Computed example of a mutant assay.
Amino acid sequence: MDLPSIQQLRNFVIYGKYGNFTTAANAANITQSAFSAQMKKLEDLVGVRLIERSNRGSHLTPAGKLFYTKIARILGELEEAMSELPGRMGKTQPLSVGIMLSLGDVHMNRHLAYFQEHHSGASFRVYNLEVREMIQWLKEDRLDIVSLFYLPALHLEEYEKVFFGIENLVYYGPNLKLPEHAVTPQYVASQPLAQYSPQYEMNRYINHYFTSHACPPQETQAWFSTPYAMMNYCQQNRIGAILPERFLQAMGIAKGYCELEPPLRLPCYLVYKKDNPKYATIQVFVDYIRRVYHIKK
């Protein structure tokens, strides 16, 4: 069996994260035509359509979503195995950091890079995962620390939790004629929506927001794994989505969305095990993040 190259798989994972050829090609630092051709060669090699393309944009097929989940995990484990080879390890073991996939935390990636630049010997392995998979990895000691929304359905009693900020969710619809004031859940529910994938905890939490305000079932037009893909879909179609305001601002978006009334806000936490052998390193990183967000002890 002919196998794909590591570069093809890495770029496929990049596409799976962003759900848009232009954004993914920029992240991979190659032209869009070269990126698209590489994805087509990958599909020809595996013999399955992984990406659905149309005039309205593109998205992963069901087979593509399954392949993305497995390949992202395999590549992460490969990089971990490489880093642990004798002679490659630095003075300190890297922290394995999990970031909630539906959070799209651009800021956290920047914080990690800045921390590494200004703390000699610091290194990280970063994984973007769905929240329940991330908690399972934390339980299995495959992750040292995770950044997530604190959702009521999660059971985190056995972990140490450090608050570092509030995430405000907003209604994003750049091609819609949005009102100048905040919108109600009834207003949002009356419009077609792009939503998080049904198996994601964020999907259940947002749906609970609507049902708790006696809204009718939402007409979901498309489901996505990441806020990057939802944002790009909204930019190409007349549809709205509920997305983190901090994520939109980090992507350079200052308009095209409005507040929700009542607001939909989620506290953000860093979660880790107190008995982790890297606890001292974790504490240094946690203190740094709290200073970034101006959280006093």
Results as ranks from 00 to 15, higher is better:
residue 106 V to Y: 03
residue 110 R to I: 00
residue 78 L to D: 09
residue 163 F to C: 12
residue 86 P to T: 11
residue 146 V to Y: 05
residue 147 S to N: 13
residue 147 S to Q: 05
residue 116 Q to S: 12
residue 122 A to P: 09
residue 114 Y to L: 13
residue 123 S to H: 10
residue 76 G to T: 03
residue 101 L to F: 11
residue 174 P to E: 12
residue 127 Y to R: 15
residue 87 G to E: 00
residue 91 K to S: 10
residue 154 L to I: 13
residue 123 S to I: 10
residue 121 G to T: 06
residue 161 K to M: 08
residue 132 R to Q: 12
residue 135 I to A: 07
residue 157 E to R: 04
residue 143 L to V: 02
residue 77 E to S: 13
residue 115 F to E: 05
residue 161 K to P: 02
residue 156 L to Y: 11
residue 155 H to P: 02
residue 148 L to F: 00
residue 101 L to N: 01
residue 131 V to R: 06
residue 166 I to M: 15
residue 93 Q to N: 05
residue 165 G to H: 07
residue 148 L to R: 07
residue 99 I to V: 15
residue 166 I to Q: 12
residue 113 A to T: 15
residue 127 Y to I: 03
residue 137 W to H: 12
residue 119 H to S: 06
residue 77 E to V: 07
residue 134 M to V: 10
residue 118 H to N: 15
residue 159 Y to T: 08
residue 83 S to M: 13
residue 147 S to M: 09
residue 85 L to V: 13
residue 94 P to W: 12
residue 85 L to I: 14
residue 138 L to W: 05
residue 123 S to Y: 10
residue 105 D to E: 08
residue 76 G to M: 07
residue 85 L to E: 10
residue 134 M to F: 09
residue 116 Q to T: 13
residue 147 S to W: 03
residue 145 I to H: 08
residue 119 H to I: 04
residue 167 E to T: 00
residue 140 E to G: 04
residue 105 D to N: 15
residue 98 G to S: 02
residue 143 L to W: 03
residue 125 R to A: 04
residue 158 E to P: 02
residue 159 Y to D: 06
residue 140 E to Y: 06
residue 95 L to I: 11
residue 121 G to V: 02
residue 85 L to M: 15
residue 162 V to K: 15
residue 92 T to V: 05
residue 145 I to R: 07
residue 131 V to W: 01
residue 82 M to P: 01
residue 125 R to W: 01
residue 130 E to Y: 05
residue 95 L to Q: 05
residue 139 K to L: 11
residue 74 I to H: 09
residue 161 K to V: 02
residue 103 L to D: 09
residue 168 N to F: 03
residue 86 P to D: 11
residue 144 D to G: 11
residue 155 H to S: 13
residue 134 M to P: 09
residue 152 P to T: 05
residue 131 V to F: 04
residue 131 V to S: 05
residue 129 L to Y: 08
residue 132 R to D: 14
residue 175 N to P: 02
residue 144 D to A: 12
residue 90 G to C: 01
residue 151 L to E: 12
residue 105 D to G: 03
residue 126 V to A: 03
residue 88 R to E: 00
residue 133 E to V: 07
residue 152 P to D: 11
residue 89 M to K: 14
residue 77 E to D: 14
residue 149 F to P: 04
residue 157 E to L: 10
residue 111 H to Q: 11
residue 131 V to G: 01
residue 161 K to E: 01
residue 127 Y to H: 14
residue 127 Y to S: 15
residue 84 E to A: 15
residue 156 L to P: 03
residue 77 E to T: 08
residue 161 K to T: 03
